[in-house]
């Protein structure tokens, strides 16, 4: 129920109608799986970069229901929609896509009621100057998660009031979860 509503609400962020189409990569993989039964994904490298938009995911397979990818500029708008719908913040983290020279920050939101719907919001920034607006003004609990992500990935959360290392030492100038991190 809430899932359809949220897809609808979040889709409005993307005026372009095309992203609502199912992700081509998944279908291609399934096609191949159908083709030669046992051997899955012989050539997964060809997958094109994902376009921004809202995707509906199978909860049983992935553990979340809605997968939103957007530009950092639209993040606040999306989080506000999610906040208004009564979701709680589960976590914020990053992923270092070193091959694409991008850093992805991932936001998980879930619900307290029994209308299960986990929303994943992703946004990608260039690796050499990663910067994402902070959502700690909307969700104060994001503050710690953002500080942690800043520790590990060096993603700058613009507007964060207190972006100092949380888990790493106070003087840490390294980001251990970057793929080119050498201890």
């Amino acid at each position: 129920m809430i899932k359809e509503k949220m897809i609808q609400a979040l889709s409005e962020l993307f005026p372009d109608p095309e992203p609502i189409v199912e992700e081509p990569v998944v279908e291609a993989a399934e096609d191949e799986a159908a083709d030669d039964g046992k051997k899955k994904k012989p050539k997964k490298k060809v997958e094109p970069p994902r376009v921004n938009g809202v995707l509906e995911r199978d909860h049983a397979a992935h553990g979340y229901d809605i997968d939103v990818q957007l530009d950092p500029g639209e993040l606040l708008a999306a989080v506000m929609i999610i906040d208004k719908a009564g979701f709680f913040i589960e976590s914020i983290t990053g992923v270092d896509w070193i091959k694409e020279k991008q850093l992805e920050s991932v936001y998980d939101f879930s619900r307290y009621d029994h209308d299960l719907c986990r929303i994943v919001v992703r946004t990608r920034t260039p690796r050499d100057n990663p910067s994402v607006p902070t959502i700690s003004k909307i969700y104060p609990g994001a503050s710690w998660h953002e500080r942690e992500t800043h520790d590990f990935f060096g993603i700058k959360f613009e507007g964060h009031p207190h972006l100092i290392p949380l888990l790493l030492p106070e003087d840490a100038d390294f980001h251990p979860l970057l793929k080119d991190f050498k201890p």
Binding site: F88, I89, Y112, P140, G141
Partner: peptide
């Protein structure tokens, strides 16, 4: 409950705030 939501508190903390989660 609202504070739990904003901070993502779960478990007995949320259940002690009346959230059936």
């Amino acid at each position: 409950a609202e504070m739990c939501r904003k901070y993502g508190a779960t478990g007995p903390v949320a259940r002690g705030a009346g959230l059936d989660f």
